[in-house]
Structures are given as C-alpha cells and as structure tokens.
Amino acid sequence: MIAVLDNFWALLGLKVLAATGVILTVALVIIFAELKISAHMQSRVGPYFAGGRYGWAQPLADAVKFLQKEDLVPRDADRPVFKMAPMVVLAGTLAVFVIVPFSPDLVVRNLDLGVFYALAAGSIGTVGVLMAGWSSANKYSLMGGLRAAAQLIAYELPLVLAVVGVVIASGTMSMVGIVEAQAEPFFHLGDTAIRLPYVFQGQIVGFAIFMIAMLAELSRTPFDMPIAESELVMGYLTEYSGIRFTMFFLGEYAGIVAMSAIASTLFLGGYYFPGLDSATFGPVVLLAKIGLLAFVMIWFRWTFPRFREDQLQSIAWRWLVPLSLVNIAVTATFKVVF
C-alpha cells in the first residue's frame, strides 16, 4: 500500500479522486444548506420529503432528475463553445484545490506561488461564463456574459490587492507557509502566547475587501447582476438546460467552496486552531471555517438587495481599489517600522 503511494502517478490519481470527492460533497452540502437556511430565513420549512428526514437527499434527487432531462442546444448557438463553457468553469475551480492545505501534510501540492496561483486559477471560471454568454446567441445571455466580465474586471483588483497585505505580513506566498505564520505567537501575555489569525492582526480591512470582492467574483447577491432573474431571465444560463445547467450550478457552488477555502486559509488561520493538533483536526477545522463563510454568504443573500450595474463599478473603483492600496501602504509601513 505504502509502496504504491511512492509512485508519483498513482499518488496523483488518488489525490485527484479524493479532492474531487471532497469538493463535490461539500458543494452538495452547501446547496442543501442554502435551501434549508433560505427557507428558515423566510419562515418556511424548505425541502421536507426527499430522503425521509429533513429532506436531506434533495440535492441528489435534483441531480438525478436533471440527468434525465433533454439537452437543448439552440439552433443559432456556436456549438463547440457552447459545449466547452461548463468544462472551463469546472476545470478552473478544480485547479484551485491544488494548493488548498487541509493540514500541514494534507495538501495536493504546496506551490511556492500558492496565493498567486489560487487567484489566477480562480478567475478562469469567468472566462467560461463569458463563453456561455457569447455562444448562446441569445440577447439575455450576451448581456449576462458581458456583465460577468465587467464584474471580474472591476473586482479582480481589490481581491488581488487585499491579499498583498497578507503576503507582506507573512513574507511568503505558499499557502502552508501563510498558515504556519498565523500559528506563530502574535504577542505574549505574561507566559501565555497569544496566537491570532491575520484578520485580528490588522488585516481586518483586507478581509472585508476580500469578502466583498469574493461575492462579486462568485456572482452572489448583492452582486448577482449576471443572472439577475428579474431583468435577464437567467443571464448567461438562459439557454442551458438539463445536465449542462447542473454542471454550471455545481461549478458555482464548488467555486464557493474554493473561494471560502482560500479566504479561511489567508485570513482565518486555515487548518490551524489554537489548542487543536493541526495534523489530526486540520481538515475538520478548515471545513468548519469554510462552512462559516458559506453561511455568511447565504445570509447576505437574504439581507442585501441587488446593486445597479454602475453602482457596482463605482464601489470597486471609488472605494475598494484605493482602500486596498492604502491597506498595502499601512501594512508595509508597520512591517518595516516595527
């Protein structure tokens, strides 16, 4: 068994399957959580029958139903691009998980460029969305795709610049290195070492900017203009039906898992929690933090109304970009002076 794991290809195959299994399971759990939490926030019960208790099997039942639905491709559509779009979305999202550390050793590949790679891979999905919008040959889809592209352009910058603060503080771009830096004592209170994640080490502004930009990148409310149901039917998804639609849907929730994992690793201490052994409890701690951030996103959905398209641009360029640049300058000054 151990000898097999020494082979690079065997180990890689195992990693791909394990990572995909975890991501899809967590994505399904978040889909179910969104159904239930949304329902309770609106004084409903939500899914109730599927699976016998609490409707726990609802996402699975939906998936099985979608599998049996006819797959329609519009006559005017650009067929190869139309069919490739969901692949691009899911490929980009899966690629992010290469660098997410679940414990000091449980990481697919600890790249030196970790953070940089994560941000690059995380924005590939938007290319898929733009492909979907363009290839559908539908006016609603086109508008939705263009809106998604505009959103990426506006919010990629605050997202990237907010991370620079963390890189300055830790002095490394490796995801494992960043978590280890947060496990170091921040200061000593008498004999007790106080260990704090970066969000409490002066990166609170960076965390807030990252969360806002993350919502925009994921097209979550209040930044869900690309699929705005009341204006664009379903935006770039209008012409997608059956299993192809499901793939986009799954990709969207896998994206939530991916971005929450990055945010928890960078700002909330990742797999590290004071007093718990990282090697044993690391995965549980990280999953709990992902769940917390996903809950906040679902909460936002039922709290804030959708922005207008020019308001979205205005917030990014007038507030978030200057604020993240100031955050970099302040963090750097503290790092050099103290």
């Binding site: 890689l12 791909v16 990572a19 995909t20 692949m87 899911l90 490929a91 980009g92 999202t93 899966l94 690629a95 998980f97 290469v98 697919v108 590949r109 790679y117 891979a121």
Partner: peptide
C-alpha cells in the same frame, strides 16, 4: 495542475 484542470 494540468491533471486537476483536465479532470474538471
């Protein structure tokens, strides 16, 4: 990285 993206 290529294998992960390809698997997606």
């Amino acid at each position: 990285v290529a294998v992960f993206a390809g698997f997606g």
